[in-house]
Protein backbone atom coordinates (compact mmCIF):
# COMPACT_ATOMS: atom_id res chain seq x y z
CA UNK A 1 0.00 0.00 0.00
CA UNK A 2 1.30 3.42 -0.80
CA UNK A 3 -0.29 6.22 1.15
CA UNK A 4 0.58 9.01 -1.21
CA UNK A 5 0.00 8.04 -4.79
CA UNK A 6 0.39 11.58 -5.90
CA UNK A 7 3.87 11.60 -7.31
CA UNK A 8 3.42 14.40 -9.77
CA UNK A 9 5.13 17.62 -8.86
CA UNK A 10 2.89 20.18 -10.52
CA UNK A 11 2.27 23.30 -8.43
CA UNK A 12 -0.81 24.04 -6.34
CA UNK A 13 -2.57 27.38 -6.64
CA UNK A 14 -3.74 27.93 -3.07
CA UNK A 15 -0.68 29.87 -1.93
CA UNK A 16 -0.94 32.26 -4.86
CA UNK A 17 -4.58 32.95 -4.04
CA UNK A 18 -3.62 33.66 -0.43
CA UNK A 19 -0.89 36.04 -1.48
CA UNK A 20 -3.24 38.02 -3.71
CA UNK A 21 -5.90 38.23 -1.00
CA UNK A 22 -3.30 39.51 1.48
CA UNK A 23 -2.04 42.04 -1.05
CA UNK A 24 -5.62 43.19 -1.46
CA UNK A 25 -5.93 43.77 2.31
CA UNK A 26 -2.65 45.69 2.48
CA UNK A 27 -3.66 47.76 -0.50
CA UNK A 28 -6.95 48.69 1.18
CA UNK A 29 -5.02 49.76 4.28
CA UNK A 30 -2.76 51.89 2.11
CA UNK A 31 -5.76 53.39 0.34
CA UNK A 32 -7.23 54.51 3.68
CA UNK A 33 -4.11 56.53 4.46
CA UNK A 34 -4.22 58.10 1.01
CA UNK A 35 -7.97 58.74 1.29
CA UNK A 36 -7.63 60.58 4.60
CA UNK A 37 -4.97 62.91 3.24
CA UNK A 38 -6.83 63.35 -0.03
CA UNK A 39 -10.11 64.22 1.65
CA UNK A 40 -8.52 66.71 4.03
CA UNK A 41 -6.83 68.40 1.06
CA UNK A 42 -9.93 68.25 -1.08
CA UNK A 43 -12.14 69.82 1.57
CA UNK A 44 -9.53 72.42 2.53
CA UNK A 45 -8.82 73.43 -1.05
CA UNK A 46 -11.74 75.82 -1.72
CA UNK A 47 -10.86 78.21 1.09
CA UNK A 48 -7.14 77.97 0.34
CA UNK A 49 -7.80 78.94 -3.26
CA UNK A 50 -10.24 81.74 -2.52
CA UNK A 51 -8.65 83.15 0.61
CA UNK A 52 -5.04 81.95 0.60
CA UNK A 53 -2.71 80.83 3.37
CA UNK A 54 -1.71 84.29 4.47
CA UNK A 55 -5.10 85.42 5.73
CA UNK A 56 -5.18 82.59 8.27
CA UNK A 57 -2.55 84.57 10.18
CA UNK A 58 -3.20 88.16 9.06
CA UNK A 59 -6.99 88.54 9.32
CA UNK A 60 -8.15 90.72 12.22
CA UNK A 61 -10.24 87.99 13.86
CA UNK A 62 -11.87 84.55 13.62
CA UNK A 63 -15.34 85.28 12.29
CA UNK A 64 -15.54 82.75 9.48
CA UNK A 65 -19.19 83.49 8.72
CA UNK A 66 -18.24 87.12 8.00
CA UNK A 67 -15.14 86.00 6.08
CA UNK A 68 -12.42 86.57 8.71
CA UNK A 69 -10.18 83.57 9.17
CA UNK A 70 -7.49 84.40 11.74
CA UNK A 71 -6.44 81.07 13.28
CA UNK A 72 -3.64 82.61 15.38
CA UNK A 73 -5.46 82.62 18.74
CA UNK A 74 -6.25 78.93 18.34
CA UNK A 75 -2.69 78.20 17.23
CA UNK A 76 -1.38 79.97 20.33
CA UNK A 77 -3.90 78.10 22.45
CA UNK A 78 -2.81 74.72 21.11
CA UNK A 79 0.86 75.61 21.35
CA UNK A 80 0.75 76.97 24.92
CA UNK A 81 -1.40 74.21 26.35
CA UNK A 82 0.84 71.56 24.73
CA UNK A 83 4.06 73.25 25.79
CA UNK A 84 2.86 73.65 29.38
CA UNK A 85 1.75 70.04 29.59
CA UNK A 86 5.01 68.68 28.17
CA UNK A 87 7.14 70.84 30.49
CA UNK A 88 5.18 69.56 33.50
CA UNK A 89 4.78 65.96 32.38
CA UNK A 90 8.44 65.47 31.40
CA UNK A 91 9.93 65.57 34.92
CA UNK A 92 6.89 63.80 36.40
CA UNK A 93 6.92 61.04 33.79
CA UNK A 94 10.67 60.50 33.80
CA UNK A 95 10.67 60.73 37.60
CA UNK A 96 7.96 58.08 37.72
CA UNK A 97 10.04 55.80 35.52
CA UNK A 98 13.15 56.35 37.65
CA UNK A 99 11.08 55.56 40.72
CA UNK A 100 9.76 52.34 39.22
CA UNK A 101 13.09 51.17 37.93
CA UNK A 102 15.53 52.23 40.66
CA UNK A 103 13.85 53.43 43.86
CA UNK A 104 10.62 51.56 44.46
CA UNK A 105 10.50 48.46 46.64
CA UNK A 106 9.59 45.50 44.38
CA UNK A 107 5.92 45.15 45.39
CA UNK A 108 5.33 48.86 44.98
CA UNK A 109 7.02 49.15 41.62
CA UNK A 110 4.74 46.49 40.12
CA UNK A 111 1.72 48.22 41.58
CA UNK A 112 2.87 51.62 40.34
CA UNK A 113 3.47 50.26 36.83
CA UNK A 114 -0.08 48.89 36.77
CA UNK A 115 -1.35 52.23 37.92
CA UNK A 116 0.45 54.08 35.12
CA UNK A 117 -1.00 51.59 32.64
CA UNK A 118 -4.48 52.22 34.01
CA UNK A 119 -3.90 55.95 33.85
CA UNK A 120 -3.03 55.52 30.16
CA UNK A 121 -6.30 53.68 29.59
CA UNK A 122 -8.68 56.25 31.08
CA UNK A 123 -10.72 57.80 28.24
CA UNK A 124 -10.09 61.47 27.52
CA UNK A 125 -13.76 62.28 28.04
CA UNK A 126 -13.46 60.96 31.62
CA UNK A 127 -10.39 63.14 32.23
CA UNK A 128 -12.31 66.06 30.77
CA UNK A 129 -15.34 65.36 32.92
CA UNK A 130 -13.28 65.10 36.09
CA UNK A 131 -11.47 68.30 35.16
CA UNK A 132 -14.75 70.05 34.59
CA UNK A 133 -16.45 69.04 37.85
CA UNK A 134 -13.44 68.95 40.20
CA UNK A 135 -10.48 70.90 38.88
CA UNK A 136 -12.22 73.85 37.21
CA UNK A 137 -14.18 74.87 40.35
CA UNK A 138 -10.93 74.66 42.37
CA UNK A 139 -9.10 76.95 39.94
CA UNK A 140 -12.20 79.14 39.87
CA UNK A 141 -11.82 79.77 43.59
CA UNK A 142 -8.28 80.94 42.96
CA UNK A 143 -9.10 83.09 39.95
CA UNK A 144 -12.49 83.02 38.14
CA UNK A 145 -13.75 81.70 35.75
CA UNK A 146 -11.75 78.52 36.32
CA UNK A 147 -12.03 77.17 32.79
CA UNK A 148 -8.58 78.20 31.66
CA UNK A 149 -5.23 77.50 30.07
CA UNK A 150 -4.08 76.24 33.47
CA UNK A 151 -6.90 73.69 33.70
CA UNK A 152 -6.03 72.46 30.21
CA UNK A 153 -2.35 72.15 31.07
CA UNK A 154 -3.13 70.25 34.27
CA UNK A 155 -5.43 67.71 32.57
CA UNK A 156 -3.12 67.22 29.60
CA UNK A 157 -0.18 66.68 31.96
CA UNK A 158 -2.05 63.78 33.53
CA UNK A 159 -2.95 62.40 30.12
CA UNK A 160 0.53 62.38 28.60
CA UNK A 161 2.38 61.42 31.77
CA UNK A 162 1.82 57.67 31.18
CA UNK A 163 3.12 57.90 27.60
CA UNK A 164 6.33 59.56 28.77
CA UNK A 165 6.73 57.30 31.80
CA UNK A 166 6.20 54.07 29.85
CA UNK A 167 8.66 55.01 27.07
CA UNK A 168 11.22 56.17 29.63
CA UNK A 169 10.91 52.95 31.58
CA UNK A 170 11.37 50.91 28.43
CA UNK A 171 14.62 52.77 27.72
CA UNK A 172 15.82 52.42 31.33
CA UNK A 173 15.25 48.68 31.30
CA UNK A 174 17.75 48.38 28.44
CA UNK A 175 20.56 49.89 30.53
CA UNK A 176 22.63 46.97 31.85
CA UNK A 177 22.47 46.54 35.64
CA UNK A 178 26.24 45.91 35.64
CA UNK A 179 26.69 49.69 35.45
CA UNK A 180 25.10 49.96 38.87
CA UNK A 181 27.18 47.20 40.37
CA UNK A 182 30.29 48.74 38.83
CA UNK A 183 29.40 52.20 40.10
CA UNK A 184 28.51 50.85 43.54
CA UNK A 185 31.88 49.11 43.70
CA UNK A 186 33.48 52.50 43.10
CA UNK A 187 31.44 54.01 45.91
CA UNK A 188 29.27 56.12 43.59
CA UNK A 189 25.73 56.78 44.82
CA UNK A 190 22.61 55.59 43.05
CA UNK A 191 21.54 59.07 42.05
CA UNK A 192 24.98 60.00 40.69
CA UNK A 193 24.92 56.84 38.54
CA UNK A 194 21.47 57.68 37.22
CA UNK A 195 22.45 61.26 36.46
CA UNK A 196 25.80 60.56 34.84
CA UNK A 197 25.30 57.12 33.26
CA UNK A 198 21.61 56.25 32.80
CA UNK A 199 20.18 59.58 31.68
CA UNK A 200 22.86 60.28 29.03
CA UNK A 201 22.64 56.70 27.75
CA UNK A 202 18.87 56.87 27.36
CA UNK A 203 18.66 60.43 26.05
CA UNK A 204 17.18 59.54 22.68
CA UNK A 205 14.65 57.14 24.17
CA UNK A 206 13.47 59.79 26.62
CA UNK A 207 13.24 62.31 23.80
CA UNK A 208 11.13 59.93 21.71
CA UNK A 209 8.77 59.65 24.68
CA UNK A 210 8.49 63.44 24.89
CA UNK A 211 7.73 63.63 21.16
CA UNK A 212 5.02 60.98 21.49
CA UNK A 213 3.57 62.88 24.44
CA UNK A 214 3.65 66.13 22.48
CA UNK A 215 1.79 64.46 19.61
CA UNK A 216 -0.89 63.22 21.97
CA UNK A 217 -1.24 66.64 23.61
CA UNK A 218 -1.56 68.54 20.31
CA UNK A 219 -4.21 66.18 19.02
CA UNK A 220 -6.27 65.91 22.21
CA UNK A 221 -9.75 67.29 21.77
CA UNK A 222 -12.34 66.33 24.33
CA UNK A 223 -10.45 67.07 27.53
CA UNK A 224 -9.29 70.54 26.46
CA UNK A 225 -12.70 71.27 24.97
CA UNK A 226 -14.28 70.56 28.35
CA UNK A 227 -11.91 72.49 30.63
CA UNK A 228 -10.39 75.35 28.62
CA UNK A 229 -13.40 77.66 28.26
CA UNK A 230 -13.15 77.92 24.49
CA UNK A 231 -12.94 81.70 24.20
CA UNK A 232 -11.22 82.76 20.98
CA UNK A 233 -8.42 84.92 22.37
CA UNK A 234 -4.66 84.96 22.74
CA UNK A 235 -4.18 84.35 26.47
CA UNK A 236 -2.24 86.82 28.62
CA UNK A 237 -2.18 84.72 31.77
CA UNK A 238 -2.58 81.04 32.62
CA UNK A 239 -6.00 81.82 34.12
CA UNK A 240 -7.39 83.05 30.78
CA UNK A 241 -9.79 80.79 28.92
CA UNK A 242 -8.44 79.60 25.58
CA UNK A 243 -9.62 77.67 22.53
CA UNK A 244 -7.39 75.12 20.81
CA UNK A 245 -7.42 74.16 17.14
CA UNK A 246 -8.95 70.79 17.96
CA UNK A 247 -11.66 72.26 20.18
CA UNK A 248 -12.44 74.78 17.45
CA UNK A 249 -13.13 71.97 14.98
CA UNK A 250 -15.29 70.08 17.48
CA UNK A 251 -17.28 73.19 18.38
CA UNK A 252 -18.00 74.57 14.93
CA UNK A 253 -18.13 71.53 12.66
CA UNK A 254 -21.77 70.93 13.56
CA UNK A 255 -23.03 74.10 11.85
CA UNK A 256 -20.16 75.12 9.54
CA UNK A 257 -20.84 75.34 5.80
CA UNK A 258 -18.96 76.51 2.73
CA UNK A 259 -15.70 78.35 3.37
CA UNK A 260 -16.16 78.06 7.14
CA UNK A 261 -16.28 74.25 6.92
CA UNK A 262 -13.36 74.37 4.54
CA UNK A 263 -11.38 76.48 7.02
CA UNK A 264 -11.93 73.84 9.70
CA UNK A 265 -10.42 71.26 7.36
CA UNK A 266 -7.45 73.62 6.96
CA UNK A 267 -6.91 73.43 10.72
CA UNK A 268 -7.23 69.63 10.49
CA UNK A 269 -4.57 69.69 7.81
CA UNK A 270 -2.33 71.82 10.05
CA UNK A 271 -2.68 69.27 12.84
CA UNK A 272 -1.83 66.46 10.46
CA UNK A 273 1.30 68.30 9.24
CA UNK A 274 2.38 68.93 12.84
CA UNK A 275 2.00 65.21 13.61
CA UNK A 276 3.90 64.19 10.47
CA UNK A 277 6.80 66.45 11.50
CA UNK A 278 6.80 64.98 15.01
CA UNK A 279 6.78 61.42 13.62
CA UNK A 280 9.69 62.28 11.34
CA UNK A 281 11.66 63.79 14.24
CA UNK A 282 10.94 60.76 16.43
CA UNK A 283 11.99 58.40 13.65
CA UNK A 284 15.21 60.37 13.11
CA UNK A 285 15.92 60.14 16.84
CA UNK A 286 15.38 56.39 16.99
CA UNK A 287 17.60 55.88 13.93
CA UNK A 288 20.37 57.89 15.62
CA UNK A 289 19.81 55.66 18.58
CA UNK A 290 20.47 52.56 16.51
CA UNK A 291 23.48 53.78 14.63
CA UNK A 292 25.13 56.08 17.12
Amino acid sequence: MTLFNNKNLSPSQSDLVLLWILRGFALLTGIIVVLITAFLLLEALPVLQQVGWLRFVSDPSWHPVQGFYNLMPMLWGSLLVTLGAVILAAPLGIGSAIFCQYYAPPFFSGFYRQLINLLAGIPSVVYGFWGLVVLVPLIGKLQPPGTSLLAGIAILTLMILPTIALTAEASFSEVPTEYFQGAAALGISRWATIRSVVLPATKSGLFTGLILGTGRAIGETMAVLMVCGNVVQTPTSIFDPIRTLTANIALEMAYATGNHRSALFVSGLLLMVAIAILVAVAEGMSRRNIYG
Partner: peptide
Amino acid sequence: RLVRRSLDVLAGVPSIVFGLFGNAF
Protein backbone atom coordinates in the same frame (compact mmCIF):
# COMPACT_ATOMS: atom_id res chain seq x y z
CA ARG B 1 8.71 50.28 4.79
CA LEU B 2 6.17 52.39 2.91
CA VAL B 3 3.20 50.67 4.55
CA ARG B 4 4.84 50.90 7.99
CA ARG B 5 5.64 54.59 7.64
CA SER B 6 2.10 55.45 6.59
CA LEU B 7 0.80 53.42 9.54
CA ASP B 8 3.07 55.42 11.88
CA VAL B 9 1.58 58.64 10.58
CA LEU B 10 -1.93 57.19 10.77
CA ALA B 11 -1.29 56.20 14.41
CA GLY B 12 -0.42 59.78 15.29
CA VAL B 13 -3.35 61.45 13.50
CA PRO B 14 -5.54 63.18 16.11
CA SER B 15 -8.94 61.60 16.54
CA ILE B 16 -10.72 64.84 15.66
CA VAL B 17 -9.06 64.67 12.23
CA PHE B 18 -10.45 61.15 11.82
CA GLY B 19 -13.78 62.73 12.69
CA LEU B 20 -13.33 65.30 9.90
CA PHE B 21 -12.41 62.57 7.43
CA GLY B 22 -15.24 60.29 8.51
CA ASN B 23 -17.72 63.11 8.15
CA ALA B 24 -16.48 64.11 4.69
CA PHE B 25 -16.07 60.58 3.34
